[in-house]
């Protein structure tokens, strides 16, 4: 089964290679992996999509938690979540095709962000299946380039994947917070 795991990592050189190395050394799958800094400069957020039997994914979570650079890990698949991925796609758009591509882009709530005489570059966000659907309606010969960001995700509701010691308005008694 597919799992989407959100990880807070120490923002240290080599932290990413520890995670990537763990997956290759133990033969686990990585479908996608995104990393970026957070509002706390000492932490990076990694969102990792993997798949495997429940036993394997259980081991993946445990092995990730064992890495000294991993501050917090949440398997978003366990609860309701929002997933987003961004797609940048460059498609051939000439003559009469230009209107049709524009309409398709509108239907998928995409935005044309760059235009030449022969091509459109379209930005689209959504979950993976929406991006897949959009790509599938464009004729393969029209597709010049596809760039996908990999999945990011966040839990629905009040639950969050933040360091245990971080206070927020939700766990503070201060009404002004």
């Amino acid at each position: 089964m597919r799992h989407i795991i959100s990880i807070l990592l120490e923002n240290e050189a080599g932290a990413l290679s520890r995670v990537a190395g763990l997956f290759s050394a133990r033969g686990y799958n990585i479908a996608s992996l995104t990393v970026a800094p957070t509002e706390d400069p000492s932490l990076s957020r990694m969102t990792l999509v993997t798949s495997g039997s429940e036993d394997v994914v259980d081991q993946i979570r445990k092995q990730l938690n064992k890495l000294v650079d991993v501050v917090k890990l949440v398997d978003l698949t366990e609860n309701k979540r929002i997933e987003r991925e961004m797609l940048l796609i460059k498609v051939c758009a000439e003559g009469g095709e230009r209107d049709e591509i524009k309409r398709l882009s509108d239907i998928f709530r995409g935005r044309i962000i760059d235009v030449t005489e022969r091509a459109y570059t379209i930005e689209l966000t959504g979950d993976g299946s929406k991006l897949d659907a959009f790509i599938s309606v464009i004729h393969p010969r029209r597709i010049l380039e596809v760039v996908r960001s990999g999945v990011i995700g966040i839990a629905r509701g009040n639950a969050s994947c933040v360091p245990d010691d971080r206070s927020s308005c939700l766990n503070s008694n201060d009404p002004a917070a």
């Binding site: 050189a13 080599g14 290679s17 520890r18 190395g21 050394a25 000294v68 650079d69």
Partner: peptide
């Protein structure tokens, strides 16, 4: 050395 030892240490530091 950090890269070479990474898979066989509990942790390493530079």
């Amino acid at each position: 050395a950090i890269g070479i030892t990474r898979p066989c240490v509990k942790h390493n530091f530079m």
